[in-house]
Write a protein that binds this DNA or RNA. Structure first.
Length: 101
DNA sequence: GTCTTGACTAGCG
DNA sequence: ACGCTAGCCAAGA
């Protein structure tokens, strides 16, 4: 496991409830701004094993990454539970909810 | 070693 | 605003 990956996991675990971060932002904090896709992969494959709050990670547009899926609904509900407002189009207001480490 | 795979992104038409 | 393209990088096969 690369240092970058460990960093990503640590950062994601540090996101407080009610806040979100973008893939690119996480990648940048972990030391590689270009590896946003890798962040996505980590979430996709390691979220359960590392108990990551994957629902607090959204794309650079402030939108939920994948639409039309059970996972989409799951993420929306999880965010609503943390009082994060998600619009009908799956958009989160980054100006309000983005977490800045 | 080399492909392939992504919950990505910035840029361009 | 929107779809498409080309970069991007680590893990798994």
């Amino acid at each position: 496991m690369q240092p970058f990956t460990r960093q990503v996991i640590t950062i994601i675990q540090s996101i407080p409830p009610g806040k979100v971060m973008t893939y690119g932002q996480i990648a940048g904090c972990a030391g590689n701004p270009k590896a946003a896709r890798q962040v996505a992969r980590i979430l996709h494959s390691m979220s359960r094993a590392h108990q990551l709050p994957w629902h607090r990670v959204i794309n650079a547009q402030g939108k939920i990454a994948i639409q039309n899926s059970e996972i989409y609904e799951e993420q929306r509900l999880a965010l609503n539970d943390e009082h994060v407002d998600v619009t009908s189009s799956g958009t989160v207001n980054l100006a309000i909810y983005q977490h800045h480490p």
